[in-house]
C-alpha cells in the first residue's frame, strides 16, 4: 500500500485547469521531492490531498484511505506545514499545539505529553507562552512544523518549509527531517531551493503547467555529471517553459 496514491487527478478553477490528470505514487518511508515553478500546481495538489480544496476528477488516497470518502482516517495520517502561515497569530504557541491535538482526537493526557515533547524538540521552551505574531520568521517555521507533527502523522507534507529561514535553522531542519524520515515518516517536500531537494530527497517529481513532466529516483536527475537544477531547467524549458 502506497503512502500516497494520486490517480488521474484533475483540478479546475472554472474553465482554468490548474492540475491536468496527474498520477503519482509515494511509497512509505520515501523522502519525495515535488518540484515545479510558481503556479505549476504543487500547492493545488497539496490542498486537494489535505482537504483545503475540493476536487471531483480522479482519486487521491493516503495509506489506502480515500481523501474524500474516508477523509477522517486519511487526514489523521497527514501532517501539513503549508507555505503560508495559516495560523491564529494572536494565540500562544502552547495553545496552538493543544487545540490542534484536540482536533485530531487526542486525549488530554496524550495532548499534554505531546505538546511538551514538540515544544522541546523544536526548542520553543522560551517562547511557548508567546503569541505567534511575536515570534521571528525562523521560530514561526518551527511552530508550523511542530503543529504538523503534533498528532504524529505518517505522511508529512512540507510546502516550502525553509522559505525565509536562516542558514543555521535550515541545517537544523534538514537534520530533523532526515532523522524522522529514517525513523519511518514519509515526507512530501516542495522547495524552490533545488540543492536542498537534491540533498534530502530520494525520489523526485516535477510538475509544470499542471502536468507531471518527470518522475523518478534522484539518481536519474543527477546522472552523467548533471545536477538537479540543470535537469529541472531543461525539463521545464522542453515543456514550453520560459525559465
Amino acid at each position: 500500500m502506497n503512502a500516497l496514491e494520486i490517480t488521474n487527478f484533475t483540478k479546475r478553477y472554472g474553465k482554468t485547469v490548474a492540475v491536468d490528470s496527474i498520477s503519482l505514487s509515494v511509497k512509505p518511508g520515501e523522502f519525495f521531492g515535488f518540484l515545479g515553478p510558481n503556479g505549476a500546481g504543487k500547492s493545488t495538489t497539496i490542498h486537494c490531498i489535505t482537504g483545503i480544496a475540493r476536487f471531483t476528477e480522479g482519486t487521491i488516497s493516503v495509506f489506502g484511505h480515500d481523501v474524500n470518502q474516508d477523509y477522517r482516517e486519511a487526514r489523521k495520517k497527514i501532517g501539513l506545514s503549508p507555505q503560508e502561515f495559516n495560523i491564529d497569530i494572536f494565540a500562544p504557541i502552547r495553545k496552538i499545539l493543544w487545540y490542534v491535538g484536540g482536533f485530531y482526537g487526542m486525549s488530554r493526557e496524550e495532548r499534554k505529553k505531546r505538546t511538551e515533547e514538540m515544544i522541546k524538540v523544536f526548542e520553543l521552551e522560551k517562547h511557548a507562552e508567546k503569541q505567534f505574531r511575536q515570534l521571528s520568521g525562523g521560530l514561526k517555521r518551527r511552530v508550523m512544523l511542530a503543529r504538523a507533527m503534533m498528532h504524529d502523522p505518517q505522511l508529512l507534507i512540507l510546502d516550502e518549509p525553509t522559505a525565509g529561514v536562516d542558514v543555521e535553522l535550515r541545517h537544523e531542519l534538514w537534520d530533523y527531517l532526515r532523522k524522522i524520515n529514517e525513523a519511518g515518516k514519509t515526507i512530501l517536500f516542495t522547495s524552490h531551493y533545488l540543492e536542498e531537494v537534491e540533498r534530502l530527497c530520494n525520489r523526485i517529481a516535477i510538475i509544470y503547467e499542471g502536468k507531471i513532466v518527470a518522475v523518478g529516483d534522484k539518481s536519474e536527475f543527477v546522472k552523467e555529471g548533471s545536477n538537479l537544477e540543470k535537469k529541472y531547467l531543461e525539463l521545464t524549458r522542453k515543456s514550453g517553459g520560459k525559465s
Binding site: 489535505t50 477522517r72 482516517e73 489523521k76 495559516n86 495560523i87 497569530i89 490542534v100 485530531y104 482526537g105
Partner: peptide, 17 residues
C-alpha cells in the same frame, strides 16, 4: 476572520465533519 487570515485551513485539514 479565520477565512481572511486563512487559519480556517487548520480546521479544514483536521478530521472534523
Amino acid at each position: 476572520f479565520q477565512r481572511f487570515a486563512r487559519h480556517i485551513e487548520e480546521v479544514l485539514v483536521a478530521p472534523l465533519s
